[in-house]
Amino acid sequence: MKVYALVGPTGTGKSYRAPHLAKEHGIDCIIDDGLLIASGRILAGRSAKAELSKIRAAKVAVFYFPNHREEVKKALQELAPEKILVLGISLPMVEKICERLELPKPEVVWDIFHLAPLDEIQMALVARESQGKHTIPVPLVEVKRNLWSAITDALPVGVWRWFYTSREKTVVRPPFSYLGKLIVSEAALRTLVFLCLVHTPWVQKVTAINLHRTERGLEVELSCVLQNGSSVAEVCRFLQQYLRERVEYLTGVELQAVHVDVEGVLFPSWQPSRS
């Protein structure tokens, strides 16, 4: 199986352009915002655009939920495509999707800014920001059949023939587009990390928490004093996994790395016995 990736920021027209790329390169199916799409039909999954909040939408888009993930994996095994196109806002996001669906890493990566004219991307961004418009690369009949009750508004666009083709699309307004933007501040993330740490039985004191934004995402550096009685290495590995899972679950923000610096281990104070 050969995996292609189409990456670019949210609202730049990836879903609109994906069917054209698939047709041009003989790609069998598309993974876009939680859906597995082939020949203009939704074969499996659920759309992130049908979620009520942006946090849940982000989780659906990267197949965070086990039942959703297993449904799409099973459909992919039955379909056995030779070529597949995965859409994401960045290459790390596409790689995360491939990892969760047990797909090979992308061999070909397209950047939307290298494929679409700048004025077209600008129009897509304006439509997203001002009107909350999102594109699903399937005909309106597929949206009605699979998502209609969860989509606030929908209309068909781009019918090239008397009967729909794989290039027909539907513009929708997801429920979360009416709720405004959700921004998680660094102060809130730092407080959340602190609360997660102090509620574990091994952390006696948190001395520092620093957040760093990199090209691959958010990294956390923390310093702490541990309680005596457990393996330091095992506790650190647990804290890394625990923080990544809890922060992503509670905020939708994915931590790319968690660095733990143990400043010390607290031993219980010794009191001499009295005779």
Rank of each mutant, 00 (worst) to 15 (best):
K59W: 04
K54I: 13
D32V: 14
Y16T: 14
A22S: 10
S275L: 05
K144S: 07
L36G: 01
V172L: 08
V253T: 04
R46V: 09
E102F: 12
L211P: 09
R69E: 14
L43N: 07
K144A: 07
R56M: 06
E71M: 13
A57Y: 04
L266K: 07
S47P: 10
Y164C: 15
R145W: 01
Y4M: 03
V126M: 11
I121F: 01
H212I: 13
R167L: 15
A80P: 04
E129P: 00
R69D: 15
S269M: 05
D28T: 10
A58C: 13
P19S: 15
S39R: 06
I112R: 00
R41E: 09
K133G: 03
V262M: 02
G252T: 13
L192W: 00
L125E: 08
V108N: 07
C224T: 06
E129L: 03
S39G: 09
K105H: 15
P106Y: 03
L103Q: 11
A80Q: 06
L239P: 00
Q204M: 10
L91Q: 06
A22Q: 06
E99Y: 13
L101R: 05
Y178K: 09
E70Y: 10
S177P: 03
D119L: 09
K205H: 14
L222P: 00
M123H: 11
S231I: 12
V157I: 15
V7F: 04
P19E: 14
L52C: 12
T10F: 06
L192V: 02
C196G: 14
S130A: 15
V184N: 06
P268W: 03
G217D: 03
E142S: 01
A61Y: 03
L91P: 06
I55Y: 05
G229W: 09
L243R: 03
A127M: 07
N228P: 01
E245Y: 06
A116L: 04
I112A: 01
I97Y: 03
Q122Y: 04
A80F: 05
A61F: 04
I37C: 05
S15N: 02
S39H: 09
K73L: 12
V220S: 00
H199N: 14
T251I: 10
V141K: 10
R274H: 11
Q131R: 13
A75D: 03
N228F: 13
G45E: 02
L211K: 08
P201L: 12
R161D: 15
L140H: 00
T191L: 07
L189Q: 04
A22F: 04
V172C: 06
